[in-house]
Simulated scan of single mutants.
Amino acid sequence: MATTQTSAQASTHRRAALVTGASRGIGRAIALRLAADGLDVAIGYAGSAARAEETVAAAREAGVNAIAVQGDVSQAPDVARLFDAAQQAFGRLDVVVNSAGIMPMAPVAPASLDAFDQIIATNLRGAFLVLGEAAARLDGGGRIVALSTSVIARSFPGYGPYIAAKAGVEGLVRVLANELRGRCITVNAVAPGPVATELFLDGKSDEQIAQLSKVAPLERLGTPADIAAAVSFLAGPDGAWVNAQVLRANGGFA
Results as ranks from 00 to 15, higher is better:
residue 1 M to N: 12
residue 2 A to K: 13
residue 2 A to P: 12
residue 4 T to H: 12
residue 5 Q to H: 14
residue 7 S to K: 14
residue 10 A to L: 12
residue 12 T to W: 13
residue 14 R to F: 06
residue 16 A to W: 00
residue 17 A to I: 01
residue 22 A to S: 13
residue 22 A to T: 05
residue 23 S to M: 08
residue 24 R to C: 10
residue 25 G to Q: 09
residue 28 R to F: 05
residue 34 L to G: 02
residue 34 L to E: 06
residue 40 D to I: 00
residue 40 D to F: 02
residue 41 V to F: 12
residue 44 G to V: 00
residue 49 A to Q: 14
residue 56 V to D: 13
residue 58 A to D: 14
residue 58 A to W: 11
residue 60 R to M: 12
residue 60 R to D: 09
residue 60 R to G: 05
residue 64 V to K: 10
residue 65 N to R: 15
residue 65 N to P: 03
residue 68 A to L: 08
residue 68 A to F: 02
residue 69 V to Q: 13
residue 69 V to S: 07
residue 70 Q to G: 05
residue 70 Q to N: 09
residue 71 G to I: 06
residue 74 S to N: 10
residue 74 S to K: 11
residue 80 A to R: 15
residue 81 R to S: 12
residue 81 R to I: 05
residue 82 L to D: 13
residue 82 L to Q: 13
residue 84 D to I: 00
residue 89 A to F: 06
residue 90 F to L: 10
residue 93 L to K: 09
residue 93 L to V: 03
residue 94 D to P: 01
residue 97 V to P: 01
residue 97 V to T: 01
residue 98 N to F: 02
residue 99 S to Q: 12
residue 99 S to H: 05
residue 102 I to H: 03
residue 104 P to K: 06
residue 104 P to F: 00
residue 106 A to T: 03
residue 106 A to N: 08
residue 107 P to L: 02
residue 109 A to S: 15
residue 110 P to S: 07
residue 112 S to E: 09
residue 113 L to N: 11
residue 113 L to W: 13
residue 116 F to L: 14
residue 117 D to A: 13
residue 119 I to N: 13
residue 119 I to T: 15
residue 123 N to D: 15
residue 123 N to P: 10
residue 124 L to F: 15
residue 129 L to T: 00
residue 132 G to C: 11
residue 133 E to S: 14
residue 134 A to Q: 10
residue 136 A to R: 15
residue 136 A to I: 00
residue 138 L to D: 07
residue 140 G to W: 00
residue 140 G to R: 14
residue 141 G to W: 04
residue 141 G to A: 05
residue 142 G to D: 07
residue 144 I to M: 06
residue 146 A to V: 01
residue 147 L to G: 01
residue 148 S to Y: 07
residue 152 I to D: 04
residue 154 R to W: 06
residue 154 R to E: 14
residue 157 P to R: 09
residue 158 G to M: 10
residue 159 Y to T: 15
residue 160 G to V: 01
residue 161 P to E: 07
residue 162 Y to N: 04
residue 163 I to A: 15
residue 165 A to N: 04
residue 167 A to C: 11
residue 168 G to Y: 08
residue 168 G to F: 03
residue 169 V to W: 06
residue 178 N to C: 10
residue 179 E to L: 04
residue 182 G to F: 08
residue 182 G to C: 06
residue 182 G to Y: 06
residue 182 G to W: 07
residue 184 C to W: 04
residue 187 V to S: 08
residue 188 N to S: 07
residue 190 V to D: 07
residue 192 P to C: 01
residue 199 L to T: 14
residue 200 F to D: 11
residue 202 D to E: 12
residue 203 G to M: 10
residue 205 S to A: 00
residue 206 D to Y: 00
residue 212 L to V: 11
residue 214 K to Q: 15
residue 214 K to E: 11
residue 214 K to F: 00
residue 215 V to R: 15
residue 216 A to C: 07
residue 216 A to T: 10
residue 217 P to F: 02
residue 218 L to C: 09
residue 226 D to G: 08
residue 227 I to P: 08
residue 230 A to I: 04
residue 231 V to Q: 07
residue 233 F to H: 04
residue 240 A to Q: 14
residue 246 V to D: 05
residue 248 R to C: 06
residue 248 R to P: 04
residue 249 A to E: 09
residue 250 N to V: 01
residue 252 G to E: 05
residue 254 A to Q: 13
